[in-house]
Amino acid sequence: MGLDVGSRTVGIAISDQLGWTAQGVEIIRIDEDNEVFGLDRVVELAKKHQIVGFVIGLPKNMNNTSGPRVDAAKHYGELLQEKIDLPIDFQDERLTTVEAERILIEEADTSRKKRYEVIDKLAATLILQNYLDRNGKLVKLLKL
């Protein structure tokens, strides 16, 4: 399961059973400031889709340094680990939101309002797909 964690939403994606393709599932509304993280819904989806692990996007800076959003993504991973005992890995997600917006504008000709409603789900899909492509499908998650 791929997660694009923001301060207000978490985009969710899952892979097919063979670990070849990622598909967006939903966007969970959260409130990071008030420590409302939507973890129960993530766990519910994980059980429903029988996932074997999580891939959380790390929004590194373009110069490969880590900032507060990287810390927030890692913290989310720690909180998730407390809720469900499945492997968690992280995937560099630089430019995935930019790529998602480009896809929605150029390829899908999506309105601004509709882009806002689906961009985090598409970003989660790109994070998971990049992970699957780069790491030999589900092998790395299963070995953790």
Rank of each mutant, 00 (worst) to 15 (best):
D33Q: 11
A124K: 06
T97V: 07
A22L: 06
Y116Q: 15
G24M: 02
T9C: 00
K47M: 12
E44W: 03
I30K: 00
V5G: 04
L86M: 02
L86V: 03
R41M: 02
G77L: 09
I14V: 11
K48G: 04
I51H: 03
I105K: 15
Y131T: 01
E106D: 14
K47W: 11
A72I: 07
D33R: 10
D71Y: 12
L141P: 00
G24F: 02
Y76N: 04
D31S: 00
V98Q: 13
G19T: 02
L86C: 01
A100F: 06
S66L: 06
E93W: 03
I105P: 07
D85W: 06
Y116S: 15
K143C: 09
Q81E: 14
N135L: 11
A124P: 04
A108F: 15
N135I: 12
V42G: 04
L95M: 13
R102L: 08
K60R: 14
W20P: 02
K74W: 09
K137P: 02
V10G: 02
I105E: 15
G24K: 06
D16S: 05
K47Y: 12
T97Q: 00
E82G: 05
G57M: 06
V10L: 03
I27R: 05
A124G: 10
A73Q: 05
E82C: 01
E32H: 06
T21V: 11
I127P: 04
L80C: 05
E78P: 00
L45W: 06
L138Q: 05
A13D: 01
E44I: 03
N130V: 10
T9I: 03
H49D: 07
K137G: 10
L79N: 07
L104Y: 10
L132P: 10
F90K: 02
E26D: 14
G38S: 01
L126Q: 00
L86A: 00
T96F: 06
N61E: 12
L122I: 14
T125Y: 05
F54W: 01
K140S: 14
A72E: 07
R134Q: 13
R69H: 07
G57A: 04
T97L: 08
R69T: 10
E26K: 11
F54E: 03
D120T: 12
K143I: 12
R69I: 08
S15C: 13
I14K: 01
L18K: 13
K60P: 00
D89I: 10
F54K: 02
E99K: 13
L144F: 15
D31T: 00
D31E: 05
K114M: 15
Q81W: 09
K60Q: 10
E44H: 10
M62E: 15
G11D: 05
V36G: 00
H75D: 14
P59R: 07
T96G: 08
S66T: 12
L142S: 12
V10F: 01
K47Q: 13
N64C: 09
G19I: 01
T96P: 05
D109M: 12
S111A: 11
A100W: 02
V118S: 13
K137A: 12
L142C: 12
I84G: 01
N130Q: 14
Q129A: 04
G77A: 10
E101M: 07
